[in-house]
Design a protein around this nucleic acid. Structure first.
Lengths: 238, 238
DNA sequence: AACAAAAAGAGAGCACTGCTCTTGCTATCT
DNA sequence: AGATAGCAAGAGCAGTGCTCTCTTTTTGTT
């Protein structure tokens, strides 16, 4: 029986890996990445700590796996919210729905959010596996913006600086946006600039809320976020 | 000799406290708050770890002291940059100068920045001592905005939602802004909304840069930040 | 000047962490 | 059936925050 993955052992391995991840996830949700102890997770699943190392080579490896899971969950939440808007040409509604889905997930998963958008762990550099997952939520937002502008005649006018400056500065972003747009269209640098700024503003707002910087200034976080999101929608001319 | 602080011991205490803080600061600058070990700091200053506890009751206390120092340094940088603009009525120039000073300091002190604006430490709640220091950099920005709008006839028109909604939502912020404005003036809720959003956007942008989320999208961080800041200046109608 | 009180440093120790290595057992493949 | 590889457990190392005890030094008072 050389079939790839049907032996009891491989099945057990997958299951146990999942159990460890789930246990770690539970601890992470309300504890923050720095407090996540591999030994504590091991105890949760009824293992000795050294046994966990058969499944994850190091604590960083475990964090990476959690990172990917969390990114995917966030991305899925954004995708679902966007897809749930029936009127596909109501780009403001889609934008608002996706943004709120992102915030809602973040509020419900503080520890995971801290892992994704908080201080990076020590010498930790996110491996390539994480990129595709990391990009999901962002892609939802970007797609809404790009689709909204796809068929329009007039391109956005550059507000600050020259289009050449923007193009040079945002080369990487323009490439990414270009891949998501229809092949024939070229992506306006001004639109790219505003999109990145809006994207940053969204996560900046959530981070400020989550990390306590809005305490005393803002009373109703949800209402405030809604304001921010709708203003960004106007800024993006959705 | 009962005079408050002239004995050799009190002088030594202040000096040693400073040495510990300085050593911790050096470690923090390029290491991140989670990696800051009290024992390592003790070794740096040639003490045994238990001796450090005569000066700081816990690691959290040390972090709090570092937090205050860093906030003050950031605040001072912003204040200096603002003050260095000769033409006091050129509010855009003052805004740009202050914002860039904030980013420059952040880039030069990654570990400190992570302590201030990254994931909060475990169960750590910033004590009141930190607030006055924390507010300094923000106050510079707020003062520029408020002063710019002080003598104007027309108030900003509410863009999204109603003024009543904004006032209710931003009660805390309006109080803070009101304290910084001239007593006679009442602060416009729309202005408060835009100011908070701009403030959030600035630190969101810096956080995204520092925590690696702009890698691949933005090539020239300084130029990008300049764009963001100038667009916010326009948004704030400085 | 002498003495009690307070403060400071050093060391040992506890409970915890990430991680490695060795030992015994068991499922898998040839 | 026998060799091989995978798995779990335990001991152990170096590091962490923090506490407690002990000794020495400085301080303030009698």
């Amino acid at each position: 029986m050389t079939s790839a993955s049907s032996t009891a052992r491989t099945r057990a391995r997958i299951e146990i890996t999942g159990e460890i991840l789930a246990a770690a996830r539970v601890r992470l949700t309300h504890a923050g990445p720095g407090e996540l102890s591999l030994r504590a997770v091991a105890r949760d699943v009824g293992m000795v700590s050294s046994a966990v190392y058969r499944y994850f080579a190091s604590r960083d490896d475990l964090l990476t796996a959690l990172l990917i899971e969390a990114y995917n969950e966030l991305g899925a939440a954004a995708e679902t919210a966007d897809a749930s808007v029936a009127e596909r040409t109501d780009f403001v509604a889609r934008w608002v729905a996706a943004c709120h889905a992102i915030r809602d997930w973040s509020v419900a998963h503080p520890g995971d959010y801290a892992l994704l958008y908080g201080t990076p762990v020590p010498g930790y550099a996110a491996p390539k596996d994480t990129i595709s997952a990391a990009v999901r939520a962002t892609s939802v937002l970007v797609d809404i913006v790009i689709t909204a502008h796809q068929g329009r005649d007039a391109e956005l006018e550059t507000r600050v600086g020259s289009p050449q400056d923007l193009e040079k500065m945002l080369a990487g972003a323009l490439e990414f946006l270009g891949q998501r747009a229809e092949p024939t269209t070229s992506v306006n640098a001004e639109l790219a600039m505003r999109t990145i700024a809006a994207w940053t503003a969204i996560f900046g707002t959530i981070s400020f809320e989550m990390f306590g910087h809005l305490v005393g200034s803002v009373d109703d976080y949800n209402a405030y976020f809604d304001q921010v999101v709708r203003r960004l929608a106007a800024e993006l001319e959705l």
